[in-house]
Amino acid sequence: MAIKFKSLPRKNPQDLVAPEKFYASAVGDGEVTMDSLAEMISYQCTVTEADCYAVLISLEKNIVSELAQGRIVKLGRLGNFQIGISSDGMITPEEVNASSITKTRINFRPGKKLRLLLNDLSFKKVG
Results as ranks from 00 to 15, higher is better:
2 A>C: 01
2 A>F: 08
5 F>C: 06
5 F>S: 01
7 S>F: 14
9 P>Y: 14
10 R>G: 04
11 K>Y: 06
12 N>E: 12
13 P>F: 12
13 P>Y: 11
14 Q>D: 10
15 D>R: 09
16 L>C: 06
17 V>M: 09
19 P>R: 15
23 Y>H: 06
24 A>H: 09
24 A>Y: 08
25 S>K: 15
25 S>H: 13
26 A>G: 08
26 A>S: 09
27 V>I: 05
30 G>F: 00
30 G>E: 03
31 E>L: 08
31 E>G: 11
32 V>K: 00
32 V>I: 13
33 T>C: 06
36 S>W: 05
37 L>D: 07
37 L>I: 04
37 L>G: 01
39 E>S: 09
39 E>N: 08
40 M>F: 05
40 M>W: 06
42 S>D: 12
42 S>Y: 11
42 S>P: 01
43 Y>H: 05
43 Y>K: 10
44 Q>I: 03
44 Q>D: 10
44 Q>L: 07
44 Q>F: 00
44 Q>G: 13
46 T>M: 08
46 T>D: 11
47 V>M: 12
48 T>P: 00
49 E>D: 01
52 C>R: 10
52 C>T: 05
52 C>S: 13
54 A>W: 00
55 V>I: 09
55 V>Q: 00
57 I>Q: 09
61 K>S: 11
63 I>V: 15
64 V>H: 04
65 S>H: 10
68 A>G: 15
68 A>S: 14
69 Q>E: 08
69 Q>S: 09
70 G>F: 15
70 G>H: 14
71 R>W: 03
71 R>H: 14
72 I>S: 10
72 I>L: 10
73 V>N: 10
74 K>W: 12
75 L>G: 07
75 L>P: 03
75 L>N: 05
78 L>P: 02
78 L>V: 14
80 N>A: 11
81 F>T: 02
86 S>C: 08
86 S>D: 07
87 S>A: 15
87 S>N: 10
88 D>C: 02
89 G>T: 12
90 M>A: 08
90 M>R: 12
90 M>H: 12
91 I>P: 00
91 I>C: 00
93 P>A: 05
95 E>M: 14
98 A>F: 06
99 S>I: 11
99 S>P: 00
102 T>I: 02
103 K>S: 04
103 K>F: 00
104 T>L: 14
104 T>P: 01
104 T>F: 15
105 R>G: 03
106 I>S: 04
108 F>E: 04
108 F>K: 00
109 R>I: 09
109 R>Y: 08
110 P>R: 05
110 P>G: 08
111 G>F: 12
111 G>E: 11
112 K>Y: 15
113 K>I: 11
113 K>V: 12
114 L>W: 01
114 L>T: 06
114 L>G: 06
116 L>V: 14
116 L>E: 15
118 L>A: 13
118 L>S: 11
118 L>H: 01
121 L>I: 03
121 L>A: 03
121 L>F: 08
122 S>F: 10
122 S>P: 03
123 F>K: 04
125 K>F: 02
125 K>I: 10
125 K>V: 07
126 V>I: 14
127 G>H: 09
127 G>T: 13
